[in-house]
């Protein structure tokens, strides 16, 4: 069986090679090449038009997407915390719930929850604390029906402060979870 197939391949190759040696066959090849080029050009144009249509559709969808509405509650993407605490405070419940609702209505949307702390205390402890804050927001999202695969978490601890300065105002702005949508 195997030897027969091998024999056939060899025989066919020989036939193709033999065919190439005649002149009219070369002209036929040339015509086929031109035809293929024409088809490829048409295909490229069709692809371009499809991509353009897709782009316009996306743009329109974006205009309608409440994520891009600066007056929507979804424009609030930062949840702030008290010192050394990781509970979501009552004033941020509505924000987290709005994101939960959006994410469950848009199962293809994905977020990264970035946990941060202020500079006080040791660095690795702060990485763990930032993680606990991100996990607290994640738990609330899950509770409101967001799928596990839509949410990622990462903690930078005190390594990426949003505000400089050694005062309560700067610290308060650094103790946060940022809700970052994937583009």
């Amino acid at each position: 069986m195997f030897t027969i197939r091998s024999f056939l391949i060899v025989a066919l190759s020989a036939a193709v090679l033999a065919g190439c040696q005649t002149r009219p066959a070369v002209d036929e090849d040339e015509a086929a090449r031109r035809e293929a080029e024409r088809a490829a050009a048409m295909q490229a144009e069709a692809d371009r038009q499809r991509a353009e249509a897709e782009r316009i559709r996306e743009q329109e969808a974006m205009r309608a997407d409440p994520l891009n509405d600066p007056t929507s509650i979804l424009a609030q993407r930062i949840v702030y915390f008290d010192f050394d605490r990781s509970e979501v405070k009552p004033e941020f419940m509505a924000v987290v719930q709005a994101h939960a609702q959006y994410l469950s209505r848009n199962p293809n949307a994905r977020v990264t929850l970035e946990g941060h702390t202020d500079e006080r205390g040791s660095r690795e402890y702060n990485v763990a604390l930032g993680n606990r804050r991100a996990q607290a927001v994640r738990r609330m999202l899950m509770f409101h029906g967001v799928a596990d695969r839509q949410v990622e978490t990462v903690s930078y601890g005190e390594e990426k402060p949003a505000a400089r300065g050694q005062n309560e105002d700067a610290w308060a702005r650094n103790r946060r979870v940022e809700i970052l949508y994937a583009r």
């Binding site: 690795e124 990485v127 763990a128 993680n131 990622e152 978490t153 990462v154 903690s155």
Partner: peptide, 14 residues
């Protein structure tokens, strides 16, 4: 160098 620890998500440190 070699990466010795990387859990899927979260804290890998200290």
């Amino acid at each position: 160098r070699e990466r010795v620890s990387a859990l899927g998500e979260g804290v890998n440190g200290a």
